[in-house]
Computed example of a mutant assay.
Amino acid sequence: MERNERNRLSHDRKPSTEKSPSPDAPALVNWDLAASTAAAMVAPGPKMSAREIREAVADLRAAADTSVAHVHRITGLEAARDLRDSDVLVVDRASWARANSQSFSVLMGPALQHLAETRPEQLEAANTALGGTMTGAQLGAVLAFLSSKVLGQYDPFAALGGVGKPGGRLLLVAPNIITLERELNVEPADFRLWVCLHEQTHRVQFAAAPWLREHMLEQISQLSNGMMDKAQTLSERLGSAVKALTANSAGTGEKDNDGVPRKPADLLSLLQDPQDKERLSHLTAVMSLLEGHANVVMDAVDASIVPSVKTIRQRFNNRGAKRGWIDRFFRQIMGLDAKMRQYSDGARFVRAVTGRVGMEGFNRVWEKAENLPTEAEIHSADLWIARMGL
């Protein structure tokens, strides 16, 4: 979308720019700079007239409304009957980036507060060296890249910072939806409804499990706190890893019981202890569940609802083969490929469970945190079914 038209492609109320962190929260990241950097760097969207923009926004709003009844019918979740505690926003790329800078500030707030309370001298030194400028600019560049990739997103965390309605907000990124429907050469009305089915499912998930937002925030905070606590000894562990790598190369390193050289730890492993790895595994399983469930719902509609659904899914899945190496590189380092695996892993889990015990049995997953599947259970649905006594 051309720059002079982008600002029109949004909801009547764009994501608020009010501060999310508490007044006393450490300012290691300049969140305003992140949002403004992303807005300046976002790639232009498809060329459209003002009339075409208005029609696209209206179509997406209608598709978002229509999809809720289908989500309710497919999932059987009563939460789909009343979603008034959250917003649906049709936004442009810059607005999506701004909204995510707000959400990141909420997600990182507890970890930064923990750092301020446990090692204030390190936080002060980091603030002195960077002043939030470098980190804000770097985050803005990442958000600018991602802003052209995301079709939609349900954000339950912004409300914790006082932004929007208590339940959260669903963001539909209109330029990206339009760009992709043109690239795939599919029927726009069908594609827009298909996308909305996925995103509205996320909205329903958090409405059906109101405890889920706080649970995820607690797990993310604990994981971040643990990794920050270990960061001060990272240089020592990096040194040990380099020595181990050198020794393995020379054939003098440690070996396992079969005589195979032990593989040196990667950077993420160096920042994690067994508890951290367990939390990361748990969050991976939860994200696989959420994404896989939404994919199952969006593909559960038949041709009477989305006439070209099979064509859309086939072309959507095949588009990855056409990406250039630069795009593939950035997707890999930013974890987008891992996210796509979460979609497929989670969808296999949901289909396996519903195939065995039906949707009603599967819906026990939304009752409490203890019912969430583990990463092992995501890959072996029978384990979860047995643990639930189904």
Results as ranks from 00 to 15, higher is better:
residue 194 W to C: 07
residue 218 E to F: 10
residue 198 H to M: 08
residue 234 L to T: 02
residue 274 P to L: 04
residue 266 D to F: 02
residue 277 K to P: 07
residue 201 T to Q: 00
residue 276 D to F: 00
residue 224 S to C: 02
residue 274 P to G: 00
residue 241 A to F: 00
residue 242 V to S: 02
residue 226 G to D: 14
residue 196 C to G: 09
residue 233 T to I: 12
residue 196 C to R: 00
residue 210 P to I: 05
residue 245 L to K: 10
residue 277 K to W: 00
residue 231 A to E: 06
residue 253 G to F: 03
residue 226 G to S: 14
residue 217 L to A: 01
residue 245 L to I: 00
residue 264 P to V: 06
residue 220 I to W: 14
residue 252 T to M: 06
residue 248 N to V: 07
residue 240 S to E: 15
residue 194 W to Q: 05
residue 233 T to C: 10
residue 231 A to D: 13
residue 231 A to W: 05
residue 219 Q to N: 10
residue 249 S to M: 10
residue 275 Q to H: 09
residue 256 D to M: 08
residue 271 L to P: 09
residue 259 G to L: 06
residue 207 A to Y: 04
residue 264 P to M: 08
residue 250 A to V: 00
residue 274 P to E: 11
residue 279 R to G: 04
residue 192 R to Y: 10
residue 234 L to S: 08
residue 276 D to E: 03
residue 272 Q to D: 02
residue 249 S to H: 09
residue 269 S to F: 03
residue 279 R to E: 00
residue 238 L to Y: 01
residue 280 L to N: 09
residue 237 R to A: 09
residue 258 D to F: 13
residue 255 K to M: 09
residue 241 A to S: 10
residue 234 L to D: 03
residue 270 L to S: 04
residue 238 L to S: 08
residue 232 Q to S: 11
residue 264 P to I: 02
residue 256 D to V: 06
residue 229 D to H: 03
residue 268 L to I: 12
residue 244 A to M: 15
residue 228 M to H: 08
